[in-house]
Design a protein around this nucleic acid. Structure first.
Lengths: 340, 340
DNA sequence: TTGTATGCGTTATCAA
DNA sequence: TTGATAACGCATACAA
């Protein structure tokens, strides 16, 4: 066994001041490189800082400055999100890039239990962050109330229905779903179905609405199968149900890439070729899209851009700027590959 | 446009004290629920807290207590990690679960640029965290020096070669590789090759060593193909090379599941059946393992357990306990599916 | 059981 | 250009 070295007491500005033979005020000025400090003093102080190994104490600084120069990044349900949802990584990266450039530290907080919820709420309340980005908040999300009560600069990625007027960034699921469905129709299919998932979330409901829009009068409710989750297994089950109900189906819009991947399996098991017998399109442009055979035609979620936009939104509020009341919607290009 | 509501000044203990007609000391006692406070005072203070909307200021508390009740979780290279490496999510979850139970806030910090490195170093130095978990540190990783200089309680997940005596948790790549190779040998294959990847990391080198161990005298250097990265495309390229050099190959150990998935594609293109003509095994038990056809036989990385163990390690140091000098190695069960 | 006073490490204001 | 000194909000030892 080894004993961890004792954590030695940290040097303070005071120590630097006595070492350099100046006052604490002057040291502070050097540390924050402010003007009005003589070259002599500066070099002496820099040497002293090096010698005593001084690093500023943020707790003290935050206390007096009333800010932390940090922004929280809150993510729920990491089970599914971190493990399955490939978007979360891109969002996180986009946010970090923007915040980093503005010299803010992004601290991401995972909520995985009620206990986490309470602790994170305390963390936010405690002044550890100047603002917050919240990913995949849900209906009645406790974080919404926390943010409102604290009047904390915030940006949501996606918009739970009860978000009221809090700022958010997202995509237009309905329009995107409509676009890819139209593209699928354009390949000449005549019996097009949908595996709709997560209808309790607005993303799921909107994608179904977009599908319906695109089909117009040709819409046949018998050709949509509803499954609970955006998962591979639900996709496979949904496809099987569709096939049983409508053997002549020749096109499928799956509510997500994972769902599409599952559908592909069911199709393969049923001896149908893709895209020969049936064309399949997904949604997300996630890692699934290139891991299937054939690669998926799908709609691209601008994950990085969402994170970046959310970060800009928070930074804007921090600068005291006004924010668009309607939320920010990003473009979602269709990416056409081989599955349809 | 809407203007964000002004952030109203936060109530302090002082406000609560005057509201409740007691001293600040008593309020403090109630907040931290310490003994020696009368029921009358307590109820009055609780009412006052509610009324003025008091929440403790962590900056002030940290300053006086000299701790933050937070542990950092540092992750590098999120490009590949967050987007591709499925382990990171599990590690993060495991760490969060343990820290949460101990009432510590986990704050994860992403390092994606030199600028990030500097800022995170400052963050750590600033007393924002009491300890730190570092994932996938690399050779000459700046964080190693930061942690040493600060004498900050830390645990690494994986061990870069120059880690010296800092605590770490990991798996025994060599033993695991040996185990799965032996299992593959046990299926009766006679010409077994390996697609070795990332030989500049010790995980990559150790997996190759384990493969060599298992084959013993039957080891044929001509049957190992070296590729740079743990990726799908390198896996496919590696398999093609192997096939060209040794058409009679009937078994392959791929250095990771992603590599194995790529190999599967190359095999399919070459008209070889799996596991009929050639048996394939991977490493990681990642999301890839169930997204391939057939599903991969592989070795399970205990991602959640690694995170949990790292967190325990840091908490132990925080409690002043000794830590094992050798690092902690977790079990890696072989999970046998359909690809071999 | 409660109140008072001091210090935690900074920044910021004001004289010097 | 520099040096005192007063906050910042809280915990805590000590006095009452």
């Amino acid at each position: 066994m080894v004993t961890v070295p004792a954590r030695r007491k940290r040097a303070t500005i005071h120590d630097v001041a006595v070492e350099a033979g100046v006052s604490r005020g002057t040291v502070s000025r050097v540390v924050n490189d402010e003007p009005y400090v003589s070259a002599a003093a500066r070099t002496a102080i820099e040497a002293a800082i090096e010698k005593v190994g001084y690093v500023p104490n943020n707790a003290a600084r935050n206390l007096v400055m009333q800010r932390s120069q940090a922004v929280g990044f809150i993510v729920h349900e990491p089970h599914s999100l971190f493990l399955d949802d490939p978007n979360i990584g891109g969002i996180l990266l986009g946010a970090n890039t923007v915040l980093s450039r503005a010299d803010y530290q992004m601290v991401s907080l995972v909520i995985d239990s009620q206990r986490d919820t309470d602790r994170v709420a305390r963390y936010l309340s405690g002044g550890f962050v100047d603002g917050v980005i919240i990913v995949s908040a849900r209906h009645e999300d406790p974080m919404i109330r926390v943010v409102e009560k604290l009047a904390l600069p915030a940006a949501f990625v996606g918009h739970p229905p009860d978000l009221r007027r809090l700022p958010f960034v997202g995509i237009d699921n309905r329009r995107s779903a409509r676009a890819i469905t139209e593209r699928l129709i354009g390949t000449g299919r005549s019996r097009i179905g949908m595996i709709a998932a997560a209808l309790d979330r607005d993303s799921g409901a909107d994608r179904l609405a977009g599908f319906t829009d695109a089909l117009g009068s040709r819409f046949d409710p018998n050709l949509v199968e509803r499954v609970p989750l955006y998962t591979y297994s639900d996709g496979a089950a949904g496809m099987r149900a569709l096939l049983a109900r409508e053997p002549g189906i020749d096109g499928v819009f799956a509510a997500s890439d994972a769902v599409a991947a599952g559908a592909l399996e069911a199709l393969r098991d049923a001896g149908r070729s893709v895209p020969g017998d049936v064309g399949v399109v997904g949604f997300d442009d996630s890692t699934w899209a290139l891991r299937t055979q054939p690669h998926l035609s799908t709609v691209h979620q601008p994950a990085f851009g969402l994170g970046a936009a959310a970060a800009e939104c928070v930074l804007g509020q921090l600068r005291g700027e006004e924010q668009p009341a309607e939320g920010i919607l990003l473009e979602t290009p269709v990416v056409w590959r081989d599955s349809a």
